[in-house]
């Protein structure tokens, strides 16, 4: 017997990444990973930076790197509004590795200059999430 599905929309500012039925989706919130299944209670959480996993209606699981924004469940409709959301297939590993290196160098140079440090740190996390999702 196949599992119950729900309507999932994944959007980033520049496009609709996914709009269809899904069995489940796992995303990283600021408090840790959460898994959403069909008939979840209404729910809102801001997203952190990390890996996301989605199983579609056919039972195929896809991995993605996801950062920023929030996830919302409203009367069974699940919406992920992310800053970036890239399927593992679309991730440019070389670019991510370059970004990782640059971010590390920047962090080293900045040490603890607050704001720039936070930006460089976020860049590093995103790069790591991409590399991770790709692997």
């Amino acid at each position: 017997m196949s599992m119950a599905t729900f309507h999932l929309q994944i959007v980033t500012p520049d496009r609709m990444v996914y709009d269809g039925q899904a069995e489940r989706v796992i995303v990283r919130t600021l408090r840790g990973d959460v898994c959403i299944l069909a008939r979840h209670i209404d729910y809102v959480a801001p997203l952190g930076i990390g890996e996301a996993r989605m199983t579609d209606a056919d039972g195929v699981t896809r991995v993605a790197a996801c950062s920023g924004g929030m996830i919302g469940v409203d009367s069974g409709e699940v919406r992920i509004m992310a800053t970036t959301f890239e399927w593992a297939d679309d991730i440019d590993l070389e670019r991510a590795q370059r970004a990782q290196k640059e971010a590390l160098e920047r962090l080293e140079a900045l040490k603890h200059e607050d704001r720039d440090f936070t930006i460089a740190e976020a860049k590093l996390k995103r790069a790591l999430a991409r590399i991770h999702a790709k692997e």
Partner: peptide, 14 residues
């Protein structure tokens, strides 16, 4: 209808 919504962080923080 969001009175019953579960917020992982308080709405203001979210």
């Amino acid at each position: 209808t969001l009175v019953s919504t579960v917020y992982e962080l308080p709405p203001a923080e979210t």
